[in-house]
């Protein structure tokens, strides 16, 4: 792509990635979550891949594959964490441990360290969606052939 597109992409892609990370991290407090934030972050990957050409992103396949496996395994493992009660029971919520702070009742902005397994599951699903959509975009782009106009 032209130098204008590359410059704008270079400026805007970190912001998109940061916003995706924010949507994933605050999934249990604000609208959004793992799927939505992951899609936002994957759009940053698509922007970079399209503006800088797909050829130089071939090396990112192994990390994307690793992230996909990590996300899926972490999600299932977090689901099995509550197997003492039922599958997917939120055992960490309000337990005082990791992400286990008590939630103030009623309408309030919320605390980041609440939610139990929800933030961890958001991160697992977010990594999975980033890796999945990113690899789909990358595969389709590589299939289309090199286009470095």
């Amino acid at each position: 792509m032209t130098v204008v597109v590359r410059t704008v992409a270079r400026i805007i892609a970190p912001m998109i990635l940061a916003f995706g990370g924010y949507v994933i991290m605050h999934g249990h407090l604000t609208p959004g979550g793992g799927f939505q934030g992951g899609a936002v972050a994957a759009s940053a990957l698509a922007l970079l891949a399209i503006s800088f050409g797909f050829g130089r992103w071939k090396g990112i396949k192994a990390p994307l594959s690793f992230l996909e496996d990590l996300g899926a395994l972490a999600f299932v493992a977090l689901g099995f964490l509550g197997i003492g009660y039922t599958f997917f029971r939120n055992v960490l919520a309000a337990s005082g441990g990791l992400f286990g702070a008590p939630v103030p009742p009623g309408p309030n902005p919320g605390l980041l360290e609440t939610g139990g397994t929800l933030p961890l599951m958001n991160w697992a699903v977010g990594l999975k969606v980033i890796a999945g959509l990113g690899s789909v975009v990358l595969l389709l782009g590589l299939f289309g052939g090199e286009d470095d106009r």
Partner: peptide, 23 residues
């Protein structure tokens, strides 16, 4: 808020009450 510890009720449904569906 009390059971799932989430202010976002949609997330509490998606990842806690209906976690199996999300899987």
């Amino acid at each position: 808020q009390a059971e799932a510890g989430a202010n976002n009720v949609v997330t509490s449904v998606v990842f806690d009450y209906r976690g199996f569906d999300t899987l």
